[in-house]
């Protein structure tokens, strides 16, 4: 039954334009980032193109991919309430918890697919750049595979968090507004307001940053990547459980 829900949710996601537009915009940004990097590399004060630079190129779009994965999770849930499709979803599958977990699994799959596609674009662009500069292209070294893995995992966790936030808030505008406010305002000022400068590394943006820092020298102001991933997973699961509780306790 759960696989049926996941299959239905993936069909819902790919049968409307919103998710495709988000993914196309992301692909355009990833390509633009590559072009920008190609233009800058070698300039004074900019990184030199060397085999190890590939890790940074792969890590670069990680946060953006996570953001789009979160948006896919939000669209999958808030769209149901916005357009009333929650009525047919709930009559077809009357157990709200099952539906929410199915949505989370579908969003995570979509997030992983998006991350893989974007990283393939990045690797293809990087391969061309390395070939033109006659520099060795070594995608299996310099922590590139681990960085790729962290980008994919971070995308999946963001997608799950998006489903949880969507179930909690139910309105697309409210959910997107809340996420943007958190990212651009709350997370920045909270450590100052609470006079806890170290708090930032434990907040969602901070842990996502840490989770993507595999292969970098350890920054004492950040969590180590593995802890960052675990805390990020904790946030995603916490939001999903809270969203499921709301779905269980309140009528659509």
């Amino acid at each position: 039954m759960t696989s049926a829900i996941i299959s239905a949710e993936l069909l819902k996601l790919r049968s409307v334009r919103g998710p495709w537009i988000a993914v196309l915009v992301l692909a355009a940004l990833v390509v633009a980032g590559l072009v920008f990097a190609a233009a800058l590399i070698g300039d004074p004060g900019q990184p030199v193109l060397e085999p190890g630079t590939l890790t940074e190129m792969v890590r670069g779009p990680g946060r953006l991919i996570g953001g789009v994965a979160l948006l896919l999770g939000l669209l999958l849930t808030t769209g149901e309430y916005r357009h009333g499709t929650v009525l047919t979803t709930r009559t077809a599958q009357p157990d709200p918890a099952r539906t929410v977990f199915g949505k989370a699994a579908a969003a995570a799959i979509a997030g992983v697919l998006v991350a893989v596609i974007m990283e393939l674009i990045t690797l293809a662009g990087a391969a061309a750049l390395y070939a033109s500069g006659d520099v060795a292209f070594e995608p299996l070294m310099h922590a590139v595979p681990a960085t790729l893995g962290s980008v994919i995992l971070v995308a999946a966790l963001h997608a799950v968090a998006g489903v949880g936030i969507g179930e909690l808030l139910r309105s697309p505008a409210l959910a997107v507004g809340a996420v943007l406010s958190w990212v651009f305002m709350v997370e920045g000022i909270l450590p100052s307001v609470l006079r806890e400068p170290g708090l930032g590394r434990w907040l969602p943006g901070g842990v996502a940053h840490s989770a993507l820092s595999i292969g970098l020298p350890h920054d004492a102001s950040q969590l180590v990547p593995a802890v960052g991933l675990v805390v990020l997973a904790g946030y995603a699961i916490g939001l999903l459980v809270a969203g499921t509780a709301r779905a269980e306790l309140t009528d659509p």
Binding site: L11, T89, A92
Partner: peptide, 18 residues
């Protein structure tokens, strides 16, 4: 109770799959 951007057929396919 249908997404305006989804076709009629896909709307029913999603329900049928679920």
């Amino acid at each position: 109770c249908f997404h305006p951007g989804r076709t009629g057929r896909n709307s029913l396919r999603a329900i049928a799959r679920m």
